[in-house]
Design a protein around this nucleic acid. Sequence first.
DNA 1: GTCTATAGCCCGATAGAC
DNA 2: GTCTATCGGGCTATAGAC
Lengths: 192, 192
Amino acid sequence: MDTREKILGTATRLFSTQGFANTSLSQVAKEAQVSKALIFWHFENKEKLFRTALQRTLEPYFINVVDDLEGLSEVDQIKRLIDQYYAFVSENLYSVKFVVSLLLRDEKHPDDLIGHVNELHRVYRNLLADILDSGRQKGVFRAKMDPRMDAALIMTALHGILVQGFMGDAAPESSEPLLQHLKASLVDTLIR
Amino acid sequence: MDTREKILGTATRLFSTQGFANTSLSQVAKEAQVSKALIFWHFENKEKLFRTALQRTLEPYFINVVDDLEGLSEVDQIKRLIDQYYAFVSENLYSVKFVVSLLLRDEKHPDDLIGHVNELHRVYRNLLADILDSGRQKGVFRAKMDPRMDAALIMTALHGILVQGFMGDAAPESSEPLLQHLKASLVDTLIR
DNA sequence: GTCTATAGCCCGATAGAC
DNA sequence: GTCTATCGGGCTATAGAC
C-alpha cells in the first residue's frame, strides 16, 4: 500500500476513535510504521492531516438513496429509507461517532462540518416529507397529517436509535426489534 | 468561596466544554486564579481532578421525577415525563453534551459512567412502561400494545431530540414544536 | 494552604543526510 | 521519499520556601 495511504488510514482510525487532541503524531507514525517526519512531508501539519482524514471519513455520506425507491409504494418507500438510514449508521458507526463527537466539542468545527451534516439531514427529511405528502394525496395516509412534522419525527426517532447505539454495547441485539417497532408505530399509524 | 471549590468549579466548566485532553491544568489554574501547584495539593493529579469534576457533573442527574406524577391520568403522566426529560436536557445541555462525548470516546470510561447512564435510562424506561401498562389495563390504551417496546420507542424519540439539539443551533426554535408533535403522535396514537 | 521555581517528559515541527 | 536527530515549548508533577 501507498505510504501516504497508510498514514491517512491510520490517522483516520485513530482520530475517529480518540479524537484530535488525544491522538499524537508519534502514535500515528508508530502505528503506521513510518517516521514522524514523513507525516510532515505528506501532510503539512497535524491540522491538514486531520482535515484530510475527516474528508475521507465523510465521503461515504454521499449515498445515493433514491435509486432504491423506484416502483415501491409510499409506505414501502418510507420503510426502505428507514432501513437504509439504519444500515448506513450501522456500517459506518465509527465515523458517525467521530462526526457526532466533533459536533459536541467546542473544538473549531472544521470548515463546514455542521453545514454538511445539516444539509444531509435536510435532504433526507425533505425526501421523507415528499413521500409522505405524495401518499397523503393518494389517500394512502391520513388526510390531516403534517408531512413535514411527521418526517421530522421519523428523523428524530432514527437519531434516537443512533444514541442508543452509542450507549449500550448492548445495542446490536436490542436495536433491531426497536427498529421494527419504530417502522410499525410511526408508519402504520399514518395509514388511514 | 473555598479555594478547592473554585478549582473544582472551574475544572468542571472547562472539562465539560473542552474535554479532558484539551484542558490543561495551567488553564484551570489561571481561570481559577490560583497557582498550578495548588491544584495538586487539593487533587492528587489531573485524573483525580477529572473524576471529581465528573461526579459533580453527574449529580443533578438524580432527579426525583416521580413526585410530580401523583394524581395525573396515565396519558398526562406520560406527557409529563416527556416534558421533564426535555426540560432536564435543556437545562443541563453542557453537561449532557459532556457525558455523551465521553460515551463516544474509546478513552477509558471513568469508572461506571456507562453503567450510570444506562441505569438512568433503564429506570426512566421502566417507569414509562409501568405507566403504559397501567393505562392499558384500565382500558385507556389499546389492548394489543407492547408497553416495554412503546416505552423504548418514546425514549428513542427523546434521545433523538437530544441529537437534534447537538446539531442545529437552530434547535431551540425548532425542537419545541417537534416535542409537541412527538407527544401527540406517540401518546395519542396509543389511546384506544 | 499557598506560592515560585524547576525537573522531566512528550509534543509538533524542522534540518539535513541519504 | 524516507530517515535520524534535534529544537523550542507546553505539559504534568514535584521540591521547597513561607
